[in-house]
Simulated assay, not measured.
Amino acid sequence: MKKRIWFNQWFTTVAHFIDMIRYNSDGIEFEVYGTSNNENALYLSYCDAAFKEPNVSGEEYLQFCLAFCRTHSIDIFVPRKENVLIAKHLKEFNALGVKVLVCPDASLMEKLDDKEATYQLIESHSFLKKYVSIPDYFIVTNAEAFKEAYYALKKKGHTVCFKPVIGEGGNGFRIIQDGLATIEELFYNGVSHKITFDHAYDILKQQSEFPPLMVLEYLDGTEYSIDCLAYDGELMTAIPRKKSKGRVRELEKNQELLTLAEKINEVLEIPFVYNIQVKYKDGKPKLLEINPRMSGGLHYSCLAGINFPYRAVKLLMMGDKAIEYIEPHFGIKASYLEKEIILKDMHLKNVKDSLFLSK
């Protein structure tokens, strides 16, 4: 019998993960369900059944998820949206016979969702300082505090940047530059993440208080994502993925980062699949964030010869019986081409107007 697996509100690149799970080496058959509040989400074309999500969050979204699993007899749920909230309610999904690909430690999930809490967690384990550093930073919620943080960091000789404390990817990230943009930046550098201090300050002054913002030193070195596969405290593999110029990614056998992955695994013991992001400054890796889920660029790391998405699902289904160590292939350099995809005319059913009827 096919296993029914559901992906909710994911990145477009989850289309790669869907194919990797569907065409697995064990020949296990999956029926893939997908939902999104965007009816043109590309990954829906890769699903066997697809639906439009209600535009809700919090408790209402949780109830939608439980109802969807119940109605469609879902076996495996791979959440991205509201994954912290879902981790807090695993018993309710387990009662339905649903296995959820999420870290079961909801308290840890909540900390990793908050960049300040993540930094505090790592700093609380002092031995990790030998392997990774935390950038200099301040947390601010008003324009005057932002100004003070900016000048304090400038006094230390840092270029300054900022980003939301709770956020995903590069959303809200800006580098503060001292002067106005040059013609070269305007014409040739594409979309810029740079902003002057005065411009940022004027924008932030529009509100007496805003959601927590992290103001920190800008790290100007090479950035790496380390994709990890683990279970029950065992780290089966880690792939340091170097972000080179433009679209180029390199799978690098960087022993410093492989050791860092081992040490973070010892401390956090995140199961299944997760991602550590670091960026170098002055020759030392500094932590950006830890994502307890499949990263958007995980498909690059799979070029090392490891089917991360399927192996994570297999660990979820079989536990320690699925622990297997595979020697990855490093030294791989990859990029990608834009490719046109004709979207299926799926006529997605709106879950508010139906009882999740199959398409």
Score class of each variant (00 low, 15 high):
residue 141 T to E: 15
residue 161 C to M: 14
residue 198 D to W: 03
residue 155 K to N: 13
residue 202 D to L: 05
residue 211 P to C: 07
residue 204 L to I: 00
residue 219 L to Q: 13
residue 225 S to T: 14
residue 148 E to Q: 10
residue 177 Q to P: 04
residue 136 D to F: 13
residue 176 I to K: 02
residue 149 A to W: 05
residue 171 N to S: 14
residue 186 L to F: 03
residue 177 Q to R: 15
residue 135 P to R: 01
residue 173 F to N: 07
residue 184 E to D: 12
residue 226 I to Q: 07
residue 166 I to T: 09
residue 140 V to H: 01
residue 154 K to Y: 09
residue 215 V to P: 00
residue 189 N to A: 06
residue 199 H to I: 09
residue 135 P to M: 05
residue 219 L to C: 10
residue 181 A to V: 02
residue 143 A to V: 01
residue 198 D to V: 06
residue 132 V to R: 10
residue 190 G to E: 09
residue 146 F to R: 00
residue 197 F to P: 04
residue 229 L to E: 08
residue 205 K to G: 01
residue 149 A to F: 04
residue 137 Y to C: 04
residue 229 L to F: 07
residue 136 D to L: 11
residue 206 Q to N: 08
residue 153 L to M: 12
residue 208 S to F: 03
residue 181 A to Q: 11
residue 216 L to V: 10
residue 216 L to M: 15
residue 213 L to K: 00
residue 186 L to H: 08
residue 211 P to D: 07
residue 204 L to S: 01
residue 137 Y to V: 07
residue 212 P to W: 04
residue 198 D to H: 03
residue 142 N to D: 08
residue 198 D to I: 04
residue 134 I to Q: 11
residue 198 D to R: 04
residue 200 A to S: 13
residue 165 V to N: 15
residue 143 A to W: 01
residue 139 I to G: 04
residue 227 D to W: 03
residue 151 Y to Q: 09
residue 201 Y to L: 01
residue 231 Y to A: 02
residue 217 E to D: 10
residue 215 V to M: 04
residue 204 L to D: 00
residue 145 A to G: 10
residue 206 Q to G: 12
residue 212 P to G: 02
residue 198 D to N: 11
residue 191 V to K: 14
residue 191 V to A: 13
residue 231 Y to M: 05
residue 150 Y to G: 02
residue 161 C to Q: 11
residue 149 A to C: 09
residue 169 G to L: 07
residue 217 E to C: 06
residue 183 I to D: 11
residue 214 M to I: 13
residue 207 Q to T: 05
residue 177 Q to I: 15
residue 204 L to N: 00
residue 204 L to A: 00
residue 175 I to T: 11
residue 140 V to I: 07
residue 175 I to K: 15
residue 170 G to F: 14
residue 188 Y to H: 11
residue 182 T to H: 03
residue 137 Y to G: 02
residue 158 H to S: 09
residue 134 I to K: 10
residue 132 V to P: 11
residue 182 T to Q: 01
residue 132 V to N: 11
residue 177 Q to V: 14
residue 180 L to D: 12
residue 192 S to N: 12
